[in-house]
Every structure is written in C-alpha cells, then in structure tokens.
Computed example of a mutant assay.
Amino acid sequence: MRRTGFVDAVDGLGQHDHICWVFHTLEQFRQAAGRFLTDGVAAGQQVIYLAEGASATELDHVAGFAAARMSGAALVQDLGIYEPLRPVDAAAQVAEYERATDQALAAGFTGLRVAAQVTPLARTPAQLDAFTRYEHHADALMIRRPFSAMCGYHAGELSAAAVAELASMHPLATPGSTPLRMFPSAQPEVTAVLAGEVDLAGRRLLHDVLRRVDLTPVDGAVTIDARDLTFLDHRGLFQLVDQVRARGATTVLHVAERSPVRLVAELLALPDVRLVMS
C-alpha cells in the first residue's frame, strides 16, 4: 500500500511512494536524498540522483552509495536532461520514466527510485503550471509501476503559493507545505483522492488543482475518495461539483460516517452528488 499524509522523514518509503520534500538548504536536500536512495538500494531498486550541476561523486559520502554507483545500481544525472528553461513535456517525461523503470526491471532490479531537486523546473508561471500537471501524471505511473520518487523544492526560491501547488499533487508531503492534496487513487473504481482542508485559504488552491488533475468520468461518474478530507466548506463543494458537472458527470464522494464533508453534502442535498460511507 502507498503511504499518504504529511511526514518529516523519508525513511522507510515503499516501491510506489511519491513525496514532495520542501527544503531550505541544498545540504538538507542532499542528506534526505541520500537516505531515500540508500533505502532503495537496500530494497534492490535502481536509484537515480538528479540535481542541477550534480557531480558524479556528490553522494559518495553516503554509506554504500559509491559502491552502488560503481555497480550501476545508483546513477547521478544533471538536471539539464529536462531542458530546464522550458516547461516540461509531461507526457514525454512520464514515458521516459516508464521506459527507465522497464530497463531497471530487465536488468534485475526490483524497480526504480528517483530523488530529484527540481526547483529550476517550476520557477516561471508556465513552468509551474506544466510541472504540477506532470507531477499528477507521474503519480499515476507510480501506482501502475514499481517507481517511487522524492521531488525536492527549495522554499527559498519558490513562493509559498507555488510550493503549495506542487505539494498538492503528492500523496506525501512535508508538514505545512500545502493545506490539501489531490492525487490518483490506487483503487480502479476511484478517480482521485482529496485530502486535507478546503476552507477560505484552500479554495483558490482547489480551483487550480481541479484544472490540472484528470477527472475523466467512468460510467457517468467521477468518484472522489474524501475520507481524509477533514474540512470542506460549501463553496469548496460547489467548486468540486461544478468541475465534475462540466464533464457531464455525477460526483460520488466516499466519506467517513462522521466526516464534516458528509454533513455539508447532506445539508446542500445537491441532486448530482452521491455519498458512499466507507
């Protein structure tokens, strides 16, 4: 099972986990990336360290990393492979990681694990929009394939609003990085998971998130797992339902029995919203 929520450590993450790691110094990122990647090596994965201007020996101080690099179990790549001055091509990059995962499996590894310092890919508004969309599609790949990733963002180089948009596309994020998260579900019958809080501060973020995620209806419905949504005001529910309605579909919300989301939805009694207690 994939882990979700807010965490302050990268240790012990699994084959399909995807974390947004917000850091304040490059050394903080290197230390966390070293732990994340050595966990992957121990689990039999091929691992990649990706950062702007990365040197081949940048993580050799991490126990076991130099040996893994020499054997081909660990790779170090410069961020330049992404063409960092241009918005990322989400479909092409996801296809590249799927190919790299297949190559790792063919070489006898149990999967692929990447720690990437990708701040330079989200600096402009166009880059930010493209990269948040890419994060969503990359997360869908991580459900299907044994591919896990740690996406690092420098809090000193990006605004808090930009960090929140990026973090909102991850099942896992550092505490305080975003009020809400929306990401693909591992359950085939569920379109997406919506977690966190949607209040006055979160409604603008929800608006941007809903523009970027894939809410393709199945049998005339978009099903959202809202069991970890701790607060949703009526305007936030209207936003969600309007986006689904624009796709010609009904909104199905999976909620906990005592969820405040259930109370709001039942109070509004919208005709194209159906609740499922779970």
Rank of each mutant, 00 (worst) to 15 (best):
residue 3 R to Q: 14
residue 7 V to S: 14
residue 8 D to L: 10
residue 10 V to W: 06
residue 12 G to T: 06
residue 15 Q to S: 15
residue 22 V to K: 07
residue 26 L to H: 14
residue 29 F to N: 00
residue 30 R to E: 10
residue 35 R to Y: 03
residue 37 L to E: 08
residue 38 T to W: 12
residue 47 V to P: 04
residue 47 V to Y: 02
residue 55 S to F: 02
residue 59 L to W: 11
residue 59 L to R: 07
residue 60 D to G: 12
residue 61 H to W: 15
residue 64 G to C: 13
residue 65 F to G: 04
residue 66 A to K: 15
residue 67 A to E: 15
residue 69 R to C: 02
residue 71 S to C: 05
residue 71 S to K: 11
residue 74 A to T: 15
residue 75 L to I: 12
residue 76 V to R: 00
residue 78 D to L: 02
residue 80 G to D: 07
residue 81 I to N: 08
residue 82 Y to T: 09
residue 83 E to L: 13
residue 84 P to N: 09
residue 87 P to L: 02
residue 91 A to S: 13
residue 96 E to N: 12
residue 101 T to H: 02
residue 107 A to Q: 15
residue 110 T to S: 08
residue 114 V to W: 01
residue 121 L to K: 04
residue 125 P to S: 03
residue 125 P to W: 05
residue 125 P to Q: 05
residue 129 D to Q: 07
residue 138 A to D: 01
residue 139 D to I: 13
residue 140 A to Y: 01
residue 140 A to S: 13
residue 142 M to D: 15
residue 144 R to Y: 06
residue 145 R to Q: 14
residue 145 R to P: 08
residue 148 S to L: 13
residue 150 M to N: 06
residue 151 C to I: 02
residue 151 C to R: 02
residue 153 Y to R: 08
residue 154 H to M: 05
residue 155 A to M: 03
residue 155 A to C: 09
residue 156 G to N: 11
residue 158 L to D: 05
residue 161 A to M: 05
residue 162 A to F: 13
residue 165 E to W: 00
residue 170 H to V: 05
residue 173 A to M: 12
residue 174 T to Y: 05
residue 174 T to L: 06
residue 176 G to Q: 07
residue 178 T to K: 14
residue 178 T to D: 11
residue 180 L to I: 07
residue 181 R to E: 09
residue 182 M to R: 00
residue 184 P to G: 05
residue 184 P to I: 00
residue 185 S to K: 01
residue 185 S to Y: 03
residue 187 Q to A: 02
residue 188 P to C: 02
residue 192 A to P: 03
residue 193 V to H: 14
residue 194 L to C: 09
residue 196 G to L: 06
residue 198 V to Q: 12
residue 199 D to M: 07
residue 199 D to L: 04
residue 203 R to G: 14
residue 210 L to W: 04
residue 211 R to W: 10
residue 216 T to Y: 12
residue 223 T to L: 00
residue 226 A to M: 04
residue 226 A to P: 05
residue 226 A to E: 04
residue 226 A to W: 00
residue 229 L to M: 10
residue 229 L to S: 10
residue 230 T to S: 14
residue 231 F to W: 14
residue 234 H to P: 00
residue 234 H to Y: 06
residue 236 G to M: 02
residue 237 L to H: 12
residue 237 L to W: 10
residue 239 Q to K: 07
residue 244 V to P: 02
residue 246 A to L: 07
residue 246 A to E: 11
residue 248 G to T: 02
residue 250 T to W: 05
residue 254 H to F: 10
residue 256 A to D: 10
residue 261 V to F: 07
residue 262 R to N: 10
residue 263 L to S: 10
residue 264 V to E: 00
residue 271 P to G: 04
residue 273 V to D: 14
residue 275 L to Q: 03
residue 278 S to E: 15
